[in-house]
């Protein structure tokens, strides 16, 4: 059983990791380009999930819901950038933390007002429901496999966007020297809005995709947000590559830790105690990983510090 179960857990960890990447990519871009710490990124994740669940429920199509999640999160991101975030770029991190904390309250309670306190449910589209048999005879849910594929494809697309397109050149230039590219005639405030909306759309997409695996409810964004922070601290702030490596590392560590630690402790403890100690330690494992990375490299794996 062990090898097959292990492969399954590795795939689960990978799926978790690529979804974390979608969250972390937006955070790290926004921080890298605008120097802004955005606690409200998790709220955009929630907006995407709610948009997808409500549109899918109204039209019966998951794919329309997915399109709605991208549009809603990007629009919410653009509106928030234009009305609030824009005023925070020149402020210190403390003001940014407080203002985006306030935004979380507004988004969470606003959503509760609109949709009520009960969770919504989002079904996996019928075409992707059910398991597939992988080589080696492992049955694995097709939907999770598709999530891994989508996540990796988006990662590839982002690398292409940042590395090969004119927008990407501007984003990188904005990270390096914002006065200079403003002087070269790039409309910097429009660039900022685009980057923020792009990050928001990625978060919204992640929310919609993950929403089909769990329930869609108020407050679902914050745990993911904090894990995304861990990811970009491990990867190095501002680095897309770091976000990808960090996300997969965190996804695998968390999933495998929860699976393996109780087994490991079971080797020299009574089973009930092993489960308790293993589960408690597993819930702390990614933070221990983060502390370890910081001791060796305070700027993260791919950071510039």
């Amino acid at each position: 059983m062990s090898a097959m179960l292990l492969i399954e857990q590795v795939l689960n960890g990978l799926q978790y990791g690529v979804m974390l990447f979608l969250m972390a990519a937006g955070l790290t871009l926004v921080f890298g380009v605008m120097g802004l710490i955005n606690l409200a990124h998790g709220a955009l994740f929630m907006v995407g999930a709610f948009a997808c669940a409500s549109v899918a429920a109204a039209t019966g199509s998951f794919w329309l819901g997915l399109a709605a999640s991208l549009a809603a999160a990007a629009a919410a991101g653009a509106i928030v950038e234009l009305t609030v975030i824009r005023r925070l770029y020149a402020r210190d991190h403390l003001d940014q933390v407080l203002a985006t904390f306030a935004l979380i309250l507004v988004f969470s309670e606003g959503t509760r007002w609109l949709f009520g306190s009960f969770p919504l449910y989002l079904d996996i589209p019928p075409a992707l429901a059910g398991p597939v048999t992988l080589p080696g005879g492992i049955d694995y849910p097709l939907y999770r496999l598709v999530l891994i594929g989508i996540g990796l494809a988006i990662a590839g697309g982002l690398f292409w966007l940042i590395g090969r397109t004119r927008l990407g050149i501007r984003i990188r230039a904005g990270e390096a020297d914002r006065e200079m590219i403003a002087a070269l005639g790039v409309d910097i405030s429009r660039l900022y809005t685009i980057v923020f909306a792009l990050g928001a759309a990625l978060a919204g997409l992640a929310g919609a995709l993950v929403g089909a695996l769990q329930s869609v409810q108020v407050g679902m964004g914050e745990p993911v947000l904090i894990l995304a922070f861990v990811v970009i601290v491990i990867g190095g702030i501002g680095s897309i590559k770091g976000a990808l490596v960090g996300a997969i590392l965190v996804g695998l560590t968390d999933t495998l830790g929860r699976f393996l630690l109780p087994v490991l402790f079971g080797a020299f403890m009574p089973p009930s105690q092993a489960t308790t100690v293993g589960a408690a330690l597993a819930s702390m494992l990614i933070y221990i990983l983060m502390a370890g990375v910081l001791v060796v490299r305070p700027g993260g794996l791919f950071g510039r510090a």
């Binding site: 306030a102 309250l105 969470s108 309670e109 606003g110």
Partner: peptide
């Protein structure tokens, strides 16, 4: 939904 107004006040 008082936290909504708290959030707006904080902002």
């Amino acid at each position: 939904y008082w936290k909504l107004f708290l959030g707006l006040a904080l902002l």
